[in-house]
């Protein structure tokens, strides 16, 4: 066997090994999602010679900015990041949303009580700036079994709320599915509710592709309206469809925050 062939055979396994190993994505150290004023997005990836590339829009690449220090967010944004290293395949993209709260209600009334197993902190959970975790019993999630959830919010002063974001969970295996419809009302000068916005799932009652999505945010754009009382009617997914093990039984709806912007 000549010297060249020996060298090739010696290093072929090394080539395969080095090129087939992929990096894990970088870690967002900032736990919170919701903020008032400003917040800092902190990323980490503790591996020698590795870099983090990030972007506020689209998919990060090697040409995207390299993360060097915490990123200050003064408005709602979504940060996507990858880790890279000269000797490994780049990671998949990790993404995190940061959602700014413009108006904070003085009080929320939860007119639909949550299920006894997932009471959270009742209405307080919906405006405490805390994102629920994958532990459904962490006290930050409110769970509803097949209900239409009605929430009324009261503000100290009259506000112009441009949009509302509802933070939910989707976990197919746990029978927790996204909302089907949201309708928003504002109280007018005559003391009656007036519809000011709505959202409805485009594809009706189809099951989401991803089995688990713990950070699902649904925005509802609102028409111009000045009020200090806003009412939401959130309609859950409904019955689980035929191809689900729980077919015919009601899907669960999990809520952890309502954001007024």
């Amino acid at each position: 066997m000549n010297l060249f062939l020996r060298c090739v055979l010696l290093f072929v396994p090394a080539i395969i090994n080095a090129q087939s190993l992929q990096l894990a994505p970088p870690q967002f150290q900032t736990e919170g999602v919701f903020f008032r004023g400003k917040t800092q997005a902190i990323l980490s990836f503790d591996l020698e010679k590795a870099s983090i590339h990030y972007t506020f829009s689209g998919t990060p690449t090697l040409l995207s900015p390299i993360y060097t220090h915490p990123i200050t967010c003064r408005k709602s944004c979504s940060i996507s990041a990858i880790s890279t290293h000269p000797d490994y395949l780049p990671s998949i993209v990790t993404q995190k949303q940061f959602i700014k709260i413009t108006h904070r209600p003085k009080k929320l009334n939860l007119l639909t009580p949550p299920h006894n197993n997932y009471p959270g902190q009742s209405a307080k959970s919906l405006f405490d700036l805390k994102k629920g975790s994958l532990n459904l019993h962490d006290g930050d999630w409110l769970g509803f079994e097949g209900d239409t959830v009605v929430v009324e919010s009261f503000f100290e002063h009259k506000i112009h709320c441009k949009s509302i974001i509802i933070s939910t969970l989707s976990d197919l295996n746990a029978w927790i599915l996204p909302m089907r419809k949201i309708t928003v009302f504002g109280e007018n000068a005559h003391g009656s509710w007036e519809k000011i916005g709505s959202w409805e799932a485009m594809d009706g009652a189809s099951i989401p592709n991803s089995p688990v999505s713990y950070a699902t945010f649904q925005a509802v754009e609102l028409q111009y309206f000045i009020t200090n009382k806003i009412r939401l009617e959130i309609i859950s997914f409904g019955d689980l469809p035929n191809n689900h093990p729980g077919s015919g039984k009601p899907a669960w709806l999990f809520l952890d925050e309502i954001v007024f912007q």
Binding site: F11, N17, E48, D87, Y88
Partner: peptide, 30 residues
């Protein structure tokens, strides 16, 4: 205590060497 990523052999011909993982005195070839 840094996690190494490479061993030094295998750089000839511009080939990528085998990855080494671990830290300090406990580093391993996979």
């Amino acid at each position: 205590m840094k996690q190494s990523s490479l061993i030094t052999t295998g750089f000839c011909f511009g080939l990528k060497p085998e990855p080494i993982i671990g830290h300090g005195n406990f580093q391993y070839r996979i």
